[in-house]
Each structure stands twice: as C-alpha cells, then as structure tokens.
C-alpha cells in the first residue's frame, strides 16, 4: 500500500513540472474574440515541421469559405490608386514644396516656371502652409463643380485680369486645390450629341 501511494505521489509531482513540449496551446477563443484565458506555461518554440503537421491535421474550414465564392479578376488590380506624385503638379520655393492635383495649376508665367518643377529633398508642406508662405506669387481662383468638370467655363475676363498679376494661378474649391478638366464643347447640333473633352490647354470662353 505504501509503495502504491509513493508511486502516485511521483506521478503527480511530474505533472507539475511544467508542460512537455507538444501541441501548441492556442487559446480556444470564440470566433471574433481573442482569448483572455491564461496563457499556457513555458513551451519549446514551435518548429516548421510541428506547425505544418498541425495545419495538415486541422479540420477547420477555410475562413473565406463562409462567403459565396466569387470568380474573376482580382478587384484590387482593376483600378488601383495611382502614385500621388505621378498624379500631381508641384510648387516650390525657398526649400519648401507642395503638391496639387494635375490640372489644378491654370497659369504659369515664364518667370516662375522653375517654381513648378518637382525637386527632391525639399520640405514637403501641405497646401495651406505653403500658400500662406507664398502668397506673393500665387493667386487662387475659386471654381464651381461644373467649372472643375469642364461643363462651364471660367469667366474669361476675370481670368485674363488675374494673369496680368504675373502670379501662378491655382484653381481651388473651398480653399483646396482642385483639378479643372478641359472645357467640353458640344458637337454640331445636326449630329448626334456626344460628350467629348476638347484639349484647349487652358479655359476658353463660350458665349
């Protein structure tokens, strides 16, 4: 009897010496809930073979199998965002530079052309900060949505007056730079009307 009791005590003691290296103790959490359960005692770091064996033995369904399967082209590759630098025009002065959307700069006097060139190593500023420091050579013109979309023209007289200042002219909406598409001129009325952008370079007056 004493021998048996002694043997039982040994077995219990071995069980308290910490975990034996084996199946990894992933907490069994409810779906969507990370485990708040007590972490297992010390274990040996998992090996590649152990991880692969566990995965192969797993009977868990693939998580994406929850959804009705979709086929076809990867939607992420259909219309990916284009690099903002490639879609921007630049204004720089005194070591500072900002980005505005392409077609937001409506007029560049020859004497200021070098301030619209992209340069590396400058301090990049947001538009409000850059404009505040460079009001002496930048003029903004607020445009409407329809003017930005090329549906309505910018007032020619007003624009010509602004050009006389010799400043760079930037189109804005709500104070932020906005691209201005080329003015759309309707086709001849005898023909079927189609939308079409006319490359004018800058805005033209339409009576």
């Amino acid at each position: 009897m004493n021998h048996h009791r002694h043997l039982v005590c040994i077995v219990l003691a071995m069980g308290t010496l910490g975990t034996v290296s084996g199946p990894i103790g992933i907490s069994q959490a409810a779906p969507g809930e990370p485990s708040s359960a007590k972490k297992p005692a010390m274990r040996d770091v998992i090996t590649h073979e152990q991880l692969m064996a566990r995965r192969q033995a797993s009977k868990e369904a693939e998580p994406m199998a929850k959804f009705e399967k979709a086929e076809g082209e990867d939607p992420a590759k259909i219309n990916p965002p284009q690099d903002i630098i490639s879609q921007s025009e630049f204004l720089s002065s005194s070591g500072n530079m900002t980005l505005v959307p392409k077609r937001a700069i409506l007029h560049i006097p020859d004497r200021l052309r070098d301030r619209t060139v992209k340069k590396d190593g400058m301090k990049i500023m947001t538009w409000p900060s850059f404009f505040a420091k460079n009001r002496t050579w930048i003029t903004t013109i607020e445009v409407s949505r329809q003017q930005a979309e090329g549906i309505l023209p910018i007032d020619e007289k007003r624009f010509e007056s602004m050009q006389q200042t010799g400043d760079v002219i930037v189109a804005t909406m709500g104070g932020s730079p906005i691209s201005v598409l080329p003015l759309k001129i309707p086709e001849d009325t005898d023909e079927e009307e189609e939308d079409g952008a006319v490359e004018t370079g800058r805005q033209q007056l339409v009576n």
Partner: peptide, 26 residues
C-alpha cells in the same frame, strides 16, 4: 480568396493559419 456578401450584418472569421508564401512556415 474572394467571395460575395449579400446581407447586412457582422461576419466573424478565424485565421488560425496563414497564407504568406514561405519555405519555412515559422
């Protein structure tokens, strides 16, 4: 993988294993 969702609501997913290509899974 890709799939469709046609109903409003919350969908909970468990990712026990990963899909990043690697000769050594660890």
């Amino acid at each position: 993988a890709q799939g469709y969702i046609s109903g409003n609501g919350s969908y909970n997913l468990n990712f026990t294993y990963h899909y990043i290509p690697s000769t050594n899974s660890t």
